[in-house]
């Protein structure tokens, strides 16, 4: 792990976190699914909600709020958040571009797509553009192997990408300037 993607483990200078009323209602609905005493099962779905409510990343404040909601020790939340690749443990841009780099996409040109995005955005994977708009992230197989190269941004898959298509996508996203989350409907 390079320095640029190191988790932010401090609460200093990081904004406090509280669930919105709608998010809290959604969390309670999730918890009710599981048998008595098994509410920990809701941890991963709730971390997704917390990340969406915290500008796309999980701060210590956000994780601690999740621990409190579920009655878990904080370490139980940290160890899970740090295991799964969709959870960002450092601030990210308005848009996180998850570009698939695994073999089937590589056969269809993902190396070239990633190189193009690095050049266009002026950043390497793991980094965020200076204007805070884009975070470039390379990820492993997203189950889009027949339509590669591709990237995921929020809940949406952008498939069969070419240099022209990805340029257009970047322009559109920049113009829209609205955070994309995995939990978007």
């Amino acid at each position: 792990m390079s320095a640029r993607t190191r988790p932010v483990t401090t609460t200093e200078g990081v904004r406090p976190f509280a669930f919105s009323a709608t998010a809290l209602a959604e969390c309670r609905e999730l918890i009710a699914r599981y048998p008595e005493g098994r509410s920990k099962s809701a941890l991963i779905p709730i971390l997704h909600i917390a990340q969406a409510e915290n500008d796309g990343w999980l701060s210590v404040n956000a994780m601690d709020a999740v621990a409190e909601l579920l009655g878990l020790r904080r370490i139980e939340v940290y160890e899970v958040a740090s295991f799964y690749s969709m959870f960002n443990l450092h601030p990210v841009g308005t848009y996180v571009l998850d570009v698939c780099r695994t073999t089937p996409c590589m056969l269809r040109g993902s190396d070239e797509l990633i190189a193009h995005l690095e050049k266009k955005l002026g950043i390497h994977p793991g980094e965020t553009t200076k204007d805070g708009m884009f975070t470039l992230k390379t990820v492993e197989c997203l189950g889009s192997c027949g339509t590669g190269p591709m990237l995921q941004c929020g809940a949406r898959y952008h498939e069969d990408l070419t240099v022209e298509k990805v340029d257009r996508l970047i322009d559109e996203l920049r113009a829209r300037n609205q955070r994309a989350n995995y939990t978007d409907r």
């Binding site: 699914r33 997704h48 295991f83 799964y84 690749s85 969709m86 959870f87």
Partner: peptide, 10 residues
């Protein structure tokens, strides 16, 4: 039936 989402782990 409940749908449970993961978070990125092969």
């Amino acid at each position: 039936i409940h749908v449970q989402v993961g978070a990125g782990a092969y």
